[in-house]
Simulated assay, not measured.
Amino acid sequence: MEFLLWSCEDVASWIASLGFPYYRECFTENLVNGRKLIYVNCVYLPRLGITNFKDMQVISAHVRKLLGITNTPRKRSIADPSQEMLALFLEIKSRTGAWVDGLTYQQFQKDVGRL
């Protein structure tokens, strides 16, 4: 999850590479770095100044893809990893600090399994 280390400028460049160069400033002015990108969705985007619904859908879909979050099918195998587990991990990774910086998803799963 290399994107978690992205600076605000890295995020803005990524948004531009998706075909939205006119939204670069929305992300840089709001200091959206890789960790804050976790929270970017159709609810959050208008707060950044992005109100075109189609653009919001496309950007949100790319963020979900970047995060590895897929739409959960109606019939889901119990062998699939829990989406809630990934969401909890990403919420923790959005924070700062030495412990969070070093935390991997595998270590997180192992620690949660011990609880």
Rank of each mutant, 00 (worst) to 15 (best):
M1V: 08
Q107S: 13
S13K: 07
E25H: 04
I69E: 13
T72W: 05
N30H: 10
K36P: 01
C26E: 08
A12D: 00
G102P: 05
E25Q: 11
L88G: 11
L115I: 08
I69N: 04
R114W: 06
V43T: 12
Q57A: 10
A61T: 00
I50A: 03
P46M: 02
M85Q: 11
T28I: 10
L31Q: 11
N71I: 13
R47D: 13
R114Y: 07
L5C: 11
L103T: 04
L37F: 10
P73H: 09
K54R: 11
F89D: 11
S82C: 15
Y105H: 12
E91V: 11
D111C: 07
G68M: 14
Y44T: 10
F27Y: 04
K110C: 10
Y23A: 02
H62S: 15
T70S: 09
G68P: 13
V58T: 12
V100P: 00
I50G: 06
E25F: 05
G113D: 13
H62I: 04
R35V: 01
V100Q: 07
I38N: 15
R64P: 02
L66F: 01
D80C: 15
W99T: 09
T72F: 03
W6S: 01
S17T: 05
V58C: 01
E9Q: 15
G34E: 07
V63P: 05
M56Q: 09
D55M: 01
N33E: 06
L18N: 04
N71S: 12
Y23K: 08
D10N: 14
C26H: 12
V63E: 04
E25Y: 03
S77T: 02
T51G: 05
F20V: 05
K93T: 07
D80S: 15
C8D: 13
N71E: 14
G19A: 01
Y39T: 09
K36Y: 08
D111K: 02
D101W: 04
Q83D: 15
Y44A: 04
S13Y: 02
R74A: 15
T28V: 13
A87F: 10
G19W: 10
A61L: 00
P21S: 00
G97H: 08
M56P: 00
L18T: 06
A98L: 13
T104P: 07
G19P: 00
R95P: 01
L37E: 03
Q107G: 08
V43Y: 11
E84W: 09
G19N: 05
E29K: 14
